[in-house]
Structure formats: structure tokens, C-alpha cells
Design a protein around this nucleic acid. Structure first.
Lengths: 332, 332
DNA sequence: CCCGGCTCCACAAACGATTGCAGGTAAGAT
DNA sequence: ATCTTACCTGCAATCGTTTGTGGAGCCGGG
């Protein structure tokens, strides 16, 4: 009736539970013949290891927690997909938490995962997160940590980030190469390293082309469609003929604004976004965007986690490349 | 150093672990004063219940597994979001698995969840799933089951579905009311009850309007953008002036096809999709679509799960309403 | 013939929380 | 004063697995 235990197998074969346990876990101090008998009996009786008991005894689980701002975002959804594929391959289960960009939710998610005694946590911080003390506190010293996309310094474990600098640089250079003369930037939260790096890439491309960097056409905290629309009004009034955006939704707002102002895209106004969201290839004109390879990032981050858990490393830093997908909105 | 246990609290207060356990779990046979003291001490010592030990003893976990075809789909992402919000509120953790629409993956996901001793499973089946035997086998008799969106008969537990019939009926009627005379249908897999119900809604709307049901302009297995495009070629050749689609991606294909054929949308050709994907409001002309309220479905399904786990019901059937979002593609 | 070394297995103690049962105390009833 | 009753708490077993320690059996070398 109730599930069979190693004790059941033990009595059935006249050995002790310890021997059964060792046989099942591949301990070398078990005679091959008895191991074979145990394995056979286990299969015959339909034995399945009780994970709870095993974990309790070993003091750790094979669960990896993933914390993201929101799962219903193209980027994070794909990261999770990628991570899940390698983690489950490696025998780990995945539990997913959302922070909704709120620090409070991030704290409670960490608490929940700590309560579940997860073996490791993969996290991309909320927009409100600036320091990592709550994380240090939550993970103690046994839980492995992998930060991805949005990372914070001063924490143990591994970091996986996009090559945001290069992505922004390439996008901006692409606009320059297409003859745009005054390129504004919609950037995110400058207290987040990710957005800072993108801003720096944008600035570097301008500098390399001998173009001036005008703070008046750099718009911070602009990641939503609405923000993008509003900032672009000011950008156009300031004489811009192109926009580099560190997000696709804000780039969409920019596109709508430009069209509404009677500008032709890409003839009069160029736009490049970031993230390569599905809709970028559906709007008209189709929008250029920096693809961040989220699935690959998920796989890499999960690989880093597996290595941490296996004790192969103490921490590594991985950079995921980006690809500029050029479409109509920036090509003339 | 290591996490504090109930034993630590017990010795600190000169009581036994049993009393501490009872106090913490709300057992009434504990004097209020000692309970207060224990609660205070617990907080002071930063106690957190060891979930593994608790589960081992109680023989069950507080984990709910969610199985979906893919998490990086608008609809499922939002369902999960909704479900997670009520489950975590109710003290359950969530673990998520993807089947990638494959039966094999669905089986292995079920096995994994069973191994984790989950308390309940919420599932929306893969496209390949037709019978439910593998599920019956995996869940045994202790695991509660909630099916949502795509459901199968003959399984215990609760079912949460969209009012697909009404959604399709309303969408089709909307096209009729806008004066379209020959309305084709892009439908999905007819072995899936969900798609059958949508087809029936479409057919009923035609019947109620006294319009003929022509099998020649009903296209099965059409859910991808590409399929939608191809089927619409034939629909137009067959004289259609509108398309009801049971998916947004196929509706997108229909839109592209119509425009390419030189038809004006909505003047010459009307289109209504299903799912209200983000991109429907981004394409031009903006596309009408049946909103399925995925977030609410997730909340409802999770609520049903909580009630099952609490023993309040043995199973219920819940219908989530749909809302037709009318945009340019069907309004003239 | 004895002893060191090796292989393999049994014993029993954990891991931390839960819970049936028994017992002890104090209040109220007789 | 004694007994019942209600209320509270302690004792100890238990969930199923893992693992340190110890020892039985066997082989070969001295």
C-alpha cells in the first residue's frame, strides 16, 4: 500500500537498510552480487527514494530556486526555459519566484526558498534592489548563488551578464553608419549596472565617431511604452533624428511618437530597441533590436550553478554575446 | 551557527520540543502564556521551521506543481503568475515544469513532481496528450489534481476552463454584426475539447444568424502563423470576407495574407483572433481578439487547488469568462 | 600458526518535527 | 478532605534515509 522503503527491500533480502542505501547510492563498499540483487529487488518492488527523508538526512535538497522580476516577460521566460532544461537534465528541480520588481517581494522570495532548503538560487534582481545584504543573510553559507542579467557586486558565487556595452555600442554605431546625425538615448535606471553599461556603450560609440554626447537627449528611467513616447517628444523637439533605446517597449513608444509626429521611419527617424521581443518583428515598420539570447543565458547560468553545486568552482563570470537584429526601423 | 530548531527553543525555555511544536502549529492545548513566550523566543532566535523534517513527519509537502506546454507563452505565463500569487498566499510553494507540447516530457514531469512528493498538480496538457492514464498512475491517490485550459475527462479533481464556446460565439457574431457575409474559421486540433468547443461556438453563431456552415472554409490544425497564412489563401479563394481564428498567431498569418492580397482590413476583410496576445494591439491594423483572462484563470485554478488540499471539495468545474476586445481589424 | 590488511556488511545514531498517550496540576464538585 | 474534570505538558516513538564505527570473514605473508 504505502510506498516501499529501503527497509522493505532490506527485510525481503535479509540485509540491513544501510546496505540497501549504499547499494542504491553507488557506494563502492558493496559486493557486486548483493548490489545487483538489491537493484533488482528495488525495481521489482517499485521502490522510489523518499526525497524528503533523504534531504532531511543530508541537510540539502536538489532544488534550485530562480528569482526573476516577472516570468511573463519574453526575456525572463526564455531564460527560465533555458535554465530549466539544463537543471532538470542534471537532476535538479526548479522552483520559480517573482518579485514584480519589488524589493519586499524579493526578500520574501528569498525567505521562501531558504525555507525550502534549496541547494542554490539563481536571481535577477528587482528594480528596487541596490544592495545585496538581504541576499547574504538569506543564503547563509550553504546555498550557492548565481546572479544573471542584473547583478550586484560584493556577493559570492557566479555572475552571468549580457555584453550590454557591446550591444549598445553596436546598435548606436549601426545608427551612425546609417547616416543618422543626432541620436538620442532612452536608458533605464542608472543605479542598475546593466543600464549603466548600455549607456556607456552608447556613449562610446558616439565618441568613437567623433559625435558629441549631449546629456539633454539622454532620458533616464525610460523603460515603459508610455515613458518612451513621452521622452521621444522631447527628443524630437531637441532635434534628434534617431533613438537608441535600452528596451523594446520604450522603443515602441518612440516609434508611435515618431509616426504620430508625421515622421517617416526609417527615412526621417531611426530606431533601435533592445531585447528582440516578439512584437518587434510584427510592428510596422519592423523594428531593429539587440537580441540578448536569453535562452542561452539561462543555459549558461544554470551550467554555472551546476558547477558551483558540484564544487568545481567557487564562482565565475560569464559574458553572453548579443546580436543586433537589423530590421526596417533603422535601415535606409 | 546552524539554524535553530525547536529543541533549541525548548531548552532555552525549559520546556520540551513537543510543547514548542504545538505552540508553533496553533494547537489549542497550550497555555496562552507559554505560547506567547515560545513565539517570542522563536522570533528572537530567528527560528524557521525545517520544511523537510516537517514534511517527512507529516508525509506530505506544501509544494504544488504546475505543468504547462511552455512557460514563455503569454497565456501560460499569466496563468502561472495568477496561480502563484494565490498559492504563495496560502503557504504553498510552486514548482513549474514544461512539456514543450510533448507527451514524453509530460510523463517525465509528472514523475519528477511525484518524486518531490508534491501535494497537488495543476496541469494543462500537451498537444500530444489524449488520454489520462499516465496521470492517474503518477498521482496515486494522495496528490490532488487541477486541470486548466486543456482538460481531459475521466480524471479526478477539478477543472478550470475558459468559456470557449461563448468566446467563439461572440467573436463570430461580432463579425456577422459588422456585415461580413462569408466567415471562415481557423481552428486547432479537433481532438482537443478546447478547440472543439470553439468550433461549436463558431458554428452556433452562424446557425443563429441563419448562415450556412460550410466545411470547406473551416481549417483544422491551424494555430501557427504560417498555417494561418496558408489557410487564409484558400479561404479568400473560396470567397471569404472574414476569418474567425481560435488563435492569435494564426490570425496574424491571416492578416498578413489578406494585406498581401491587396485586401483592406477591415473594409474588405475582417479578422478576429483569440488570446489577446500583446502583439494584437501592436500590429496595424490593430487586431480584435478574444481575451481569456489568463491571470484570473490562474487564480481560480489555484483557488480550486487550495480547496482540494483543504478537503473542502472533491472536485469542481469552473468556467472563466471571456471578453471580446474589438479593435480595428473587425470593426467597420 | 599467527597476524596484518582488506572487503563487505550490521549496528545504531542521527536529521528535525509531529503526535498518541500518559501523567501532573489546579480548579471545582461532592 | 477527596474525587472528578479540564487543562496543560512531558515522554518517546516515528517518518525514511544516510553514515561513522566496529567487527566478521577471508586471504596471503612471515
Amino acid at each position: 500500500m504505502s510506498a516501499t522503503t529501503i527497509r522493505d527491500i532490506a527485510v525481503a533480502l535479509g540485509v540491513t537498510p544501510s546496505t540497501v542505501s549504499r547499494a542504491l547510492s553507488g557506494n563502492p563498499y558493496v559486493k557486486e552480487s548483493t548490489r545487483a540483487a538489491i537493484l533488482m529487488k528495488a525495481r521489482e518492488m517499485g521502490y522510489e527514494r523518499n526525497v524528503m527523508a533523504s534531504n532531511l538526512r543530508k541537510g540539502t535538497t536538489n532544488i534550485v530556486g530562480i528569482i526573476v522580476p516577472r516570468i511573463n516577460r519574453e526575456f525572463f521566460g526564455n531564460v527560465i526555459s533555458g535554465a530549466e532544461s539544463v537543471l532538470s537534465e542534471a537532476g535538479y528541480s526548479v522552483v520559480i519566484c517573482q518579485t514584480h520588481e519589488r524589493l519586499e517581494d524579493e526578500k520574501s522570495a528569498l525567505k521562501v526558498l531558504a525555507g525550502e532548503q534549496v541547494a542554490g538560487i539563481m536571481i535577477s534582481h528587482s528594480a528596487e534592489t541596490v544592495s545585496g545584504e538581504h541576499i547574504l543573510e538569506a543564503i547563509g553559507q550553504n546555498v550557492k548563488l548565481v546572479q544573471f542579467d542584473r547583478v550586484i557586486d560584493g556577493l559570492p558565487g557566479s555572475k552571468v551578464t549580457n555584453d550590454d556595452f557591446k550591444g549598445a555600442y553596436t546598435a548606436t554605431k549601426h545608427l551612425i553608419d546609417n547616416g543618422y546625425k543626432r541620436i538620442g538615448a532612452l536608458v533605464g535606471f542608472m543605479n542598475t549596472s546593466l543600464f549603466r553599461r548600455r549607456y556607456e556603450g552608447y556613449a562610446a560609440a558616439l565618441a568613437d565617431a567623433g559625435m558629441p554626447l549631449d546629456p539633454g537627449i539622454v532620458f533616464e528611467n525610460t523603460i515603459l511604452r508610455k515613458n518612451g513616447y513621452e521622452s521621444t517628444i522631447r527628443a524630437i523637439d531637441a532635434g534628434c533624428d534617431a533613438i537608441y533605446s535600452s528596451g523594446d517597449f520604450s522603443a515602441l513608444g518612440a516609434l508611435e511618437c515618431a509616426l504620430e509626429r508625421g515622421l517617416r521611419v526609417p527615412e526621417d527617424f531611426g530606431i533601435v530597441g533592445t531585447a528582440n521581443e516578439t512584437f518587434t518583428s510584427l510592428v510596422s515598420p519592423r523594428m531593429s533590436s539587440v537580441d540578448q539570447h536569453p535562452f542561452e543565458m539561462g543555459r549558461s547560468a544554470a551550467g554555472a550553478m551546476v558547477r558551483l553545486l558540484g564544487g568545481e568552482t567557487q564562482g565565475e563570470e560569464i559574458l553572453i554575446g548579443t546580436t543586433l537584429v537589423t530590421r526596417q526601423s533603422s535601415t535606409r
